[in-house]
Amino acid sequence: MNERLFKARVLENTPASPGYMLISLECLEDIKRPIPGQFFMIRLCSGNDPLLRRAFSLHAWIGKNRFQILYRIKGIGTKILSEIQKGQTIDVLGPLGNGFPKRKAERHVLVAGGIGIAPLIGLAETMDEKDKLSFFMGFRTKTEAICLDRVNKMAASVSVATEDGSLGQKGTVIDILNKNLNNIKSTIIYACGPRNMLKRVSDVALRHAIDAYLSMEEYMACGLGSCLGCVIRTTQGYKRVCKEGPIFDHREIVW
């Protein structure tokens, strides 16, 4: 049986760049293979503080019952996660939610803002037509630019922007997206990043009348659809990010 609540052993937990970590996990039970865009809820404390689990997207599947999560150290929960040592076991719930849809197109455009690159790597890896992949990545500064090697190996074209201009173009990922999105017949966008970036990706997609799938975030308690805490506003009323999402068609979102 595929367990959704399982223990996983930490194979490694190492810095990816300052403030970002990559953790590799081996599940101690058989789990359902996650689809890129799906996520896991990790319990970081066996006591009561911090109480709630933390949500992390699948970064990459690395073989039978093994997968990786790429995370940014943000507050107390991710700090605890960053201190977990190789060999320790952690309590994981997942895979949860719906992944990115598998679609055919002339061009697949992946747009990442900061840690938003995390699920897009796994997505790119499972795509069949790597020659049709274009990556657009935005970071604050050069030292935070993660996954560049992996992206360069996979994608047909890669564009990078940093806010301070220390790497690639100076500006935001939307700036470089706007500059390079010509000839966009039969293009699909897949994006993950801060909310205001996703909103602007949606604007771009609307302007060009193309499809875009966005990985949305909201505060979560259960991850299972029971608490109704994680809703976002959509054209069909509130929807739960953990259950109907986290991947949404951009046209659905009411910003």
Partner: peptide
Amino acid sequence: MDGNPPPRICETPCGMLNSIGLQ
């Protein structure tokens, strides 16, 4: 019922706040 707009939950020491609003 639609319930309240987000954010509807937040974590607090050893607990959480919710304002689901009976969706």
